[in-house]
């Protein structure tokens, strides 16, 4: 009797509960999307309309002027290209260096391995803003300020990526490697032909995380490159906002254009993106 009562109590308002959950989630969605919608709506207005009081919600006549005039205000295409190029180099570099080191740390026995691995891990504890000034001075000494090399060089190496790759290599059974060794494969072949294809989900995750970081990074690209043609999109947007302070449609158009590629890539690789982020919490 009592059991029955309890059961009915827990199942008392399933529909009511679901409605509340939906209401909360829907409100959250609105709060998440509203700024993007406002970004788009503003970008389709004229400068005069954007600052009219009271503000119009929908543009009176939809005009893409803010987009078409953007290249006159700053070298937008060059900045786009700079961002694509440096992001790809950073992703490729991290995948290569981190997976190679991760393989060695997970699969090869050599003297000092544990010490060197802990040394790598210690880097994880250093906040990124702590390093930025000496890294800047270093790049300056190398004569690389205002070059694209400055943007990607310090970011090719990642302790976190190495740790992540090592975890993936550790999860592959030893038998596979033994079989390959009996067949006469060396580490080079085992790494490139057998192991890398097996940890593809790990590579995708690291690639996705690194891309997100490289594309959106502000402080580093901004301080090393002050020439407009060497800027990435983040620094370019900061410049745009500083120069055209009240041209809100252009600022919004620039912001939207700069974010669209990652949103599209995210929409396509949605599952990998989410898995990649979820992996950062691995224990």
């Amino acid at each position: 009797m009592e059991n029955k009562m309890k059961l009915s109590r827990s199942g008392r308002h399933p529909r009511y509960g679901k409605a509340v959950v939906h209401a909360v989630l829907f409100l959250g969605c609105f709060i998440t999307l509203a700024p993007f919608i406002w970004m788009f709506l503003t970008s389709m207005k004229t400068q005069v309309e954007a600052v009219s009081i009271p503000p119009s919600i929908l543009p009176r006549n939809w005009r893409p002027d803010a987009y078409t005039s953007l290249p006159e205000k700053l070298p937008f295409f060059t900045m786009y290209w700079n961002t694509i190029l440096t992001s790809l180099i950073i992703v490729a570099g991290q995948l290569l260096f981190c997976s190679a080191a991760g393989y060695a740390f997970a699969r090869i026995h050599f003297p000092g391995r544990n010490f060197l691995f802990i040394l790598c891990l210690s880097v994880l504890m250093i906040p990124s803003s702590f390093l930025i000034l000496p890294q800047y001075l270093l790049i300056q000494k190398m004569g690389l300020l205002n070059t694209l090399h400055a943007i990607y060089l310090p970011n090719l190496f990642s302790a976190f990526g190495t740790f992540l790759m090592r975890q993936f290599f550790m999860s592959i059974p030893l038998e596979l490697e033994d079989a390959a060794r009996i067949d006469g494969c060396g580490h080079g072949r085992i790494y490139s032909r057998i192991m890398l294809p097996l940890i593809k989900p790990g590579l995708v995750s690291l690639g996705v995380l690194t891309l997100r970081f490289a594309w959106n990074n502000l402080m580093w690209p901004m301080i090393v490159n002050t020439e407009k043609t060497k800027m990435t999109l983040t620094a370019g947007l900061s410049y745009l906002q500083g120069q055209y302070i009240s041209d809100y449609p252009s600022i919004m158009a620039g912001a939207l254009l700069a974010t669209i590629p990652l949103i599209i890539i995210y929409a396509v690789f949605q599952r990998q993106f989410i898995e990649g982020i979820a992996l950062t919490g691995i224990k």
């Binding site: 190679a100 060695a104 250093i126 190496f157």
Partner: peptide
């Protein structure tokens, strides 16, 4: 041979971390 592979594969990473992380610290 194993050792050589081991050190060889971590060398680029260690060089990069040394230059852009440990030296800056």
């Amino acid at each position: 041979v194993d050792w050589a592979w081991g050190y060889g594969m971590i060398l680029p990473l260690l060089a990069g971390l040394g230059l852009f992380y440990f030296y800056p610290v």
